[in-house]
Design a protein around this nucleic acid. Structure first.
Lengths: 237, 237
DNA sequence: CGCCGGGTTGAATATGGTCAAAGGCTGTGG
DNA sequence: CCACAGCCTTTGACCATATTCAACCCGGCG
C-alpha cells in the first residue's frame, strides 16, 4: 500500500466500542485533519532536546509525526520516573491548572505538530465529533498508563522486562511491517526509569533473556524475538 | 453549608487550564445533570459484590454517589492488581472493543448512577459542552493513574505507603471537612495489591510509620496523621 | 588512535517476599 | 448476653531478589 500522505495531525487509538482489532485506527477524518492543520505548526526537535518541563505554562499540545519522545517526572530524591514513551500518532502535553504535568524530551530527532491550546479549545467547543475523537484517544492513553502500572506492579525483573519488550513490539507492529526485529531507541537507563528497576538490573535481565534464547541481541539497540511464546509466558506469569 | 442535593450524576475533577485549587470542581451544569438523570438509573451494590468483570460486554458506565469501589485486574499468575479505588463523583466503566477492561467490586455498600453507553454516546455526539467536561474528567483520571505509576516505581516500602496515605488524605479532604483522621475502607490485602507489595510488608510498614510517630493507628481501619511534614518527606524522598 | 559515555559484569548488602504461627476483631448462633 | 468460629491482621525467621558500589568493556566519535 502507498505511504499515507502528510495531511495534518494524525491521532490513532484502539476502538472503544467497535470490534477488536490488532491495528489502531485513525480517529480523525480528512476534514478534521485539515482543520487542525490550520491552527497547527510543524516543529522539529533534535535528539536529546527538552521540549518542556513540569510546571511550564502549557500553551500547546503536540502530535508526533515521526520520532520518539519520553515523558517523565523528576522526583525529589533526584531520580527520574518515565511515564511513557511516545511515538507517531501519539498526543502529548497534558496540563493541570495551566501547567504541564510532566517533562518531555526527544529521544530521537522528532517532527511534531504543535497545536496551541487556545485555538484547540475553541475548535473543540464547536465540534462535537472532534471532541469525541479526543475522548477515544484519552481512553486509549488511560488504558496504556494502566498497563504501565500493571508492569510496575509485577515483582519479577523478567516479567517487567518481558512486558516492556512486548509493548515495544506492539508499537512496532502498528507502525511498520511485522518483523521479529525490534529497534530499541531508548537507553538502558531510560528503560530502567520506566520499568522501575536499576539500570544494572535491566542490563542483566536482557542478558538473561538472551541466554535463555528468548531474544537475540545483535547489538544493545536491537532485539530479535526468538521465542514469542516463552516471552508471553514470562510477561504474564 | 447545606448538603448538596442529589440532582443527578456528579463528576468532579481538577481544572485543566484554570487556576490551581485544592478542591475539585463540579464539571457538570445543573442542566447536564438533569439531562443525564433522564438516561441514568440508580443502583445499589452491596459490600463485597462484583459489579462487572474484565471481558464483560460494556453496556453502561457508572458514577458513584456514595461508597468505595475497587477497580482491578486478575493476572495470569493468580495475583490481583488494583488499578485504583473509586469514590464519590468518580466515573468508571472504561471499555475497549465493547468490553470492560477491568473488573470492579464494591468495597463498601455503594450507590451509583448507571448510565447506558448507547444513550450516553448519543447525548455526547450532540452536546459539545458535555463532551468537554468528559474530556476534563478523563485527563484527571489520566493524571491520577500516572501518579499511581509513580508510586509503584518507588523502591522503598515507606515511600509507597506514605504516598498511598497522602492519596487517601487528599480524597478525604475533598469530600469532608479537613481532619487528620483518615478512614481506611479497604483491607491490607487490597492496599498490597495497589501498592505492589505483599500484605505482610504493608502491615509492617504501617506499624513502622506508627512507631516513628508519623501516624497513629487507633485501629487498622483508621489512620491519624501525626507528622504531616515527615509523611511528605517519606513520600517524596 | 585514544577518549568518553553507555553498557556489562561481579561481589557484598539490604530490602521485601515467603512461609508459618499467633493475635484480635466481627458477626453469628446458642 | 456470651461464646465461638472465621477472617483479617500482625509478628517472626529465613530466604530470594534486586540494589548498590565498583571495576571493566565496548563502540562510536573526535
Amino acid at each position: 500500500m502507498a505511504q499515507e500522505e502528510a495531511r495534518g495531525p494524525s491521532i490513532k487509538a484502539a476502538s472503544l466500542w467497535g470490534p477488536a482489532k490488532d491495528e489502531l485506527t485513525q480517529l480523525l477524518t480528512e476534514d478534521e485533519r485539515a482543520q487542525l492543520s490550520v491552527i497547527a505548526s510543524i516543529v522539529r526537535i533534535k535528539k536529546g532536546a527538552q521540549i518542556y518541563k513540569t510546571g511550564d505554562t502549557a500553551s500547546a499540545i503536540f502530535n508526533i509525526v515521526d520520532g520518539v519522545v519520553k515523558s517523565y517526572r523528576g522526583l525529589a530524591d533526584g531520580t527520574e520516573h518515565i511515564n511513557g514513551f511516545l511515538f507517531s500518532n501519539d498526543l502529548f502535553g497534558l496540563a493541570e491548572a495551566g501547567q504541564y504535568v510532566n517533562s518531555t524530551r526527544a529521544i530521537t530527532n522528532t517532527t511534531a505538530y504543535r497545536i496551541p491550546v487556545a485555538a484547540l479549545e475553541s475548535r473543540l467547543r464547536k465540534n462535537a465529533a472532534l471532541e469525541f475523537h479526543v475522548i477515544c484517544r484519552l481512553c486509549h492513553d488511560l488504558r496504556e498508563t494502566q498497563r504501565h502500572a500493571i508492569l510496575l506492579g509485577r515483582h519479577s525483573a523478567l516479567a517487567r522486562v518481558s512486558m516492556f519488550i512486548q509493548m515495544l513490539e506492539q508499537h512496532q507492529a502498528g507502525s511498520s511491517g511485522n518483523t521479529n526485529d525490534i529497534p530499541i531507541p531508548m537507553s538502558r537507563s531510560d528503560i530502567a526509569d520506566y520499568v522501575g528497576m536499576s539500570l544494572e538490573a535491566v542490563s542483566r535481565t536482557f542478558r538473561a533473556l538472551a541466554k535463555q534464547q528468548v531474544i537475540g541481541l545483535t547489538n544493545h539497540r536491537l532485539v530479535r524475538i526468538l521465542d514469542r511464546d516463552r516471552l508471553e509466558t514470562l510477561a504474564t506469569a
